[in-house]
Write a protein that binds this DNA or RNA. Structure first.
Lengths: 220, 220
DNA sequence: GCCCGGACTGAACACACGTTTAGCATGTTG
DNA sequence: CAACATGCTAAACGTGTGTTCAGTCCGGGC
């Protein structure tokens, strides 16, 4: 908010239509600092246009948000953003490319997930359905253990995956990593170990919970 | 924001000092809708006082936030909020009591964790240290599996636990639960199974990742 | 009684910001 | 050429909101 007026006019391709530049600028700023903290003038500055032009094209700041979100919803439908749940990882290079390309959208969606925005619900529901069928397919193929609570398991695992994106800044900080990709790579092995062997050495802890009360929680 | 002026003046104990009522009202509203979206007048209404009195006691809206956060930091130091990472669960009744008592603070801190607020870093660092020593103690006691990446594992598990709080609204929605405690109880068993047996039936998936590249990620 | 300081209020101020208005180019159509 | 639409801007307007001002009430010390 301080030197918002002096925001650099990033014009990677100055020939693109002003309307597109405005929408990109809005996505970037909304994702970075949030909708309310972003001023129409800051969006205009970043897109290299005047403030009234923003409203000329989108009617209002709220209309601009809706346009941004509609664009995101189509991308959600196309199955992008699956990487938010923990990288599917072809290789590090493509991870970096993906992270860079979708960083603004990811920031926006991360924000939308923790507030109760329509687009956040949309994304979560999609990822949840994906997780359900993915886990079921793994079960059918004999790769994933069966469970008596498929919905709860899918949701819990989805949350665990999303958390690595939502809390990426903290992850980088405590692990001393320089960027998100590095941090994601660092937690890969321990997560694979967790998913393969579990965390406990035996069933004593689970037994303790199941005898104490018929259903219970867990620890870090 | 609509009928913010008609916010009910919740006065559970009208004898408490105005200063305390103001701080409570601020914590509640900041946690509910965020700092920027909360007006000084709304805080004053909720506390049953006038807007200038808020500033008389705390200097400015920003000063009020700092006062709120200082109060939270002392509570963090006292080790409250450990339940954010997945309930330690004495029993359902105390879970509900705890959830109710700390709901406003939890909302505030959940928000602080996903933005990059000072108090959020403070909380995360504390929980991370707790997780590290907790897991190490479990290892020493022979209950937790050893790992070659204790920091990364602790951070990843901490995130997974926190996610259940950060994404509680989505969890409730997709599982059709009525409140957070119910949802937490629902994911307890699958998480215990995950921690006890793992998710995969054998090590094929991990092997595939370790042969493909020396370090890699995961799926929902 | 008098004074002083602190809690407290209604009214007003100042600024930020979304939005509106009026107008200027430029290109296209009749 | 006239008429008009389109993309765009500078300037101004109106409102919401943090903050300040001036003053009231009240309790305690002298």
């Amino acid at each position: 908010m301080l030197n918002m007026s002096s925001a650099q006019v990033v014009d990677p391709s100055p020939d693109r239509t002003a309307r597109a530049r405005i929408r990109d600028a809005a996505l970037h700023l909304f994702g970075e600092v949030g909708f309310r903290a972003t001023t129409v003038r800051a969006i205009a500055d970043r897109a290299g246009v005047s403030a009234p032009l923003v409203l000329h094209h989108f009617g209002s700041k709220e209309g601009l948000r809706q346009s941004v979100e509609e664009h995101l919803v189509t991308q959600i439908r196309e199955g992008k953003f699956a990487t938010m749940t923990g990288q599917l990882t072809p290789d590090e290079l493509s991870m970096r490319a993906n992270a860079e390309e979708f960083a603004p959208a990811m920031s926006y969606l991360a924000r939308a997930l923790t507030e109760d925005a329509e687009v956040g619900r949309h994304l979560y529901d999609r990822l949840y359905q994906d997780a359900l069928v993915y886990l079921q397919a793994g079960e059918d193929a004999g790769l994933i253990r069966p469970t008596g609570h498929p919905e709860a398991r899918a949701a819990a695992l989805l949350n665990a995956g999303l958390a690595q994106t939502l809390l990426r800044h903290h992850l980088e900080r405590v692990l001393g990593m320089d960027d998100q990709v590095e941090a994601m790579l660092a937690i890969g092995p321990p997560l694979l170990d967790l998913y393969t062997d579990g965390l406990f050495t035996d069933s004593r802890i689970r037994d303790a919970f199941s005898t104490a009360s018929p259903s219970e929680g867990t620890q870090p």
